[in-house]
């Protein structure tokens, strides 16, 4: 059994989610190979070769793979997949974009966002916004799987010394082109990798008020997230949304500020180790999952909290 893990990266940095995906591969068992598809991504290949437990790294360096366009990347992966028992990618917006395309090309089902490995063919995954956990078994010859990072403790980024092999694929399929991107710039930790997350909801009232959360976060070394309502209202950008249809986080500490606790929001954060809720409505459902709840006006509580931590 040999497992192919698709590296998550932006040609400059190997994303931490790759380490969680390798952890899932380790739980399945067998040799682990990592594919780095990108452009000018030699350093990513070298970083991948250091990951604990990786036996071999394949690097496909081609301008066509620079932005992980699925029309170009999926044929490359589908072609390689024929040599593997499992193909795994992190359930990031990249993995979710190209991997189902790979699965359909191979004529197999995809198993999305596994949170546990029961055996080489049986996995657990949340459904209905995490209100149920399904155990599913696959009889496919090639098992194509996305991995929810919070379900698996990352393997070490170093300690391995895998061989690196350059490969090439068909390149540009000629169907799509990258036009541009607007990436959020922040010195704070990445939301899905942060140890502490402070999130704001509709109760923040406007984007400007998020400054209270940013300064609290900076004192705690935390990332800042948001509810859908805060994103929809334009307080903060979409990449900050935590929830069923946004990012899934499971930090050591999650502080929900002015968030009611809709099931779709809980789906993205209820596996956090410790949850704090700050809300003026003592009946807010967020208190049902909070370890520590504080009822009151967030505009008084947050500045005081910032002073005391």
């Amino acid at each position: 059994m040999t497992i192919l893990v698709i590296a998550e990266h932006n040609n400059a940095v190997l994303a931490a989610a790759t380490l969680n995906t390798v952890a899932a591969a380790k739980a399945i068992g067998g040799d682990i190979h990592v594919l780095v598809a990108g452009s000018g991504c030699g350093a990513i290949g070298e970083a991948a070769a250091q990951i604990e437990g990786v036996a071999k790294v394949l690097v496909a360096d081609d301008a066509a793979y620079a932005n992980q366009l699925p029309e170009n990347v999926a044929p490359l992966i589908a072609d390689l997949a024929k040599n593997y028992s499992h193909v795994l990618a992190a359930a990031t917006t990249n993995g979710k974009n190209f991997l189902p395309r790979v699965a359909a090309q191979l004529d197999v089902d995809q198993i999305s966002e596994i949170i546990a490995v029961e055996s080489a063919d049986t996995f657990k995954r949340p459904i209905y916004a995490g209100n149920a956990i399904a155990t599913v078994q696959s009889s496919a010859a090639i098992k194509v799987i996305t991995v929810r990072a919070t379900g698996f403790d990352a393997v070490n980024a170093t300690g391995g010394s895998a061989a690196v092999e350059q490969i090439s694929g068909a390149g540009d399929a000629g169907k799509s082109a990258f036009v541009g991107e607007e990436l959020a710039k922040s010195d704070r930790p990445e939301l899905t990798a942060a140890k502490i997350v402070v999130s704001g909801g509709r109760g923040m009232q406007n984007g400007d008020n998020f400054k209270h959360l940013y300064s609290l976060a900076d004192k705690l070394g935390a990332a800042v997230g948001a509810s859908r309502a805060a994103v929809d209202a334009g307080f903060v950008p979409n990449d900050m949304q935590v929830g069923q249809t946004g990012k899934i986080v499971a930090p050591q500490l999650y502080i929900a500020v002015g968030i009611s606790g809709a099931i779709q929001h809980l789906a993205g954060m209820k596996d956090s180790k410790v949850i704090v809720a700050i809300n003026k409505d003592e009946e807010a459902p967020i208190f049902q999952v909070a370890d520590y709840g504080l009822v009151g006006d967030l505009f008084e509580i947050v500045p005081e909290l910032e002073k005391l931590v």
């Binding site: 209100n131 155990t135 496919a140 370890d291 709840g293 504080l294």
Partner: peptide, 26 residues
């Protein structure tokens, strides 16, 4: 090629406590 073997409720989180002040929270 995929079959569902079982569907279970997620591990329940037990509700915690309400604290009275920011100082107590910290």
């Amino acid at each position: 090629t995929v079959k569902t073997l079982k569907v279970e409720a997620p591990a329940a989180r037990s509700a915690g406590i309400k604290v009275k002040s920011v100082a107590e929270l910290v």
